[in-house]
Design a protein around this nucleic acid. Structure first.
Lengths: 199, 199
DNA sequence: AATCAACTTGACCAGACGGTCAAGTTGATT
DNA sequence: AATCAACTTGACCGTCTGGTCAAGTTGATT
């Protein structure tokens, strides 16, 4: 879309995005109509199409900014850390915490992964995360600290564990994010071929 | 639904299910209308509602039989194996192979996981798989062969790795299922706290 | 006060959807 | 040949959908 927005416009748009995220996560993308969204915000239907050219475009925008936000958090947490394995550990924890704090967005990303229309948008964002992890893994590999195995596969596996355990333990059961981060980090350390830390 | 079906009826129903699986996996559940399904099979719309009371019911039936089928395969593969860790290893491999051979069903299960309407049906089936894995893990734990950690979390993590790597490596890239099974089994063995087998 | 881009309204549209049903066909059983 | 449950047809229905648009409002700028 891309329009020249006043402050009022920016606020309205943010309002629509916020309500849409909530509704999509609660009722699902398909079950949430544009009418639902504008009714929820309390505006006319035309407002929606002033800010977005379609329901699909809105959703893609939500996905893009979400993935960007998660990566930003990960980068912030590992900034300045020398040890590649520590970067991975902190990256995993950052991911779990972001997923825990943004459960709505986690659901939307998970949904989008399995929808042909949005799969490519998701893959683009995921590729970035996997590349990040891959570079740390390769550094650790070069240092001879983990056994040689396809770094991409390892990165994907770690992402999957983080997603799944966050889903079940935090979203479904409301467990403590720190405890889940430990769980995920533990499993992944082992999966990478490192001895378990029993300290 | 549950009707008294003749052989002709059973065949027609199987025809509808087969086409629906294909269409759901290709175009998505929401984008596939009942009209699409009956057109694809080449019958009138009433036929669909003779065999199923709704589109939703058909989908749930597909999910149930899929999950049952996957478990059956797993049980068959590990039947008679004494060593709990070997049962886990073989169970992982059976899962990967089943997912690889039933890519359409893998997509549908993955989709259903994130849809409120079908999440409970999925959880019921997943619970069974997790219980199976949990019992093997507890046996290994009692034998002191793996470090003590929540067996359920371990089971969930293994399932997630199997799903994710199968998705990326087999469904997206067409890699060899045996190679992927190795990848998954390796990562999981490490995740369980076992040393890597470098033989 | 005039102007104009930004913003808002809500009736309206064409098409698709899940589901119904009265009517007709098939084929095994008696 | 008569019967009847199993099966099939496709027109039809009410509802909802994403999206349009002519008309009107707001508020900063000149």
């Amino acid at each position: 879309m891309s329009r020249q927005l006043t402050q009022r416009g920016e606020e309205r748009k943010a309002q629509l995005v916020a309500y849409a995220i909530e509704a999509f996560a609660r009722d699902g993308y398909h079950s949430t109509s544009v009418a639902d969204i504008v009714d929820g915000v309390g505006v006319g239907k035309g407002v929606f199409y002033w800010y977005f050219s379609s329901k699909e475009e809105l959703f893609v925008e939500i996905l893009r900014t979400s993935q960007r936000d998660m990566r930003r958090r990960q980068q912030r947490e590992i900034h300045g850390i020398e040890d590649p394995l520590e970067r991975i550990d902190l990256g995993i924890r950052a991911a779990v915490h972001w997923l825990a704090e943004n459960n709505d967005l986690r659901r939307l990303i998970e949904f989008a992964r399995n929808e042909a229309t949005f799969a490519t948008a998701i893959q683009k964002g995921q590729k970035v995360l996997v590349e990040d992890a891959r570079s740390h893994l390769e550094e650790a590999l070069a240092q001879g600290r983990i056994p040689a195995r396809d770094p991409e596969a390892l990165a994907l596996a770690m992402l999957a564990v983080a997603n799944q355990l966050t889903h079940v333990y935090i979203a479904e059961r409301g467990e403590d994010p720190d405890m889940v981060a430990d769980l995920v980090a533990d499993f992944c350390r082992g999966g990478l071929g490192l001895a378990l830390d029993h300290s």
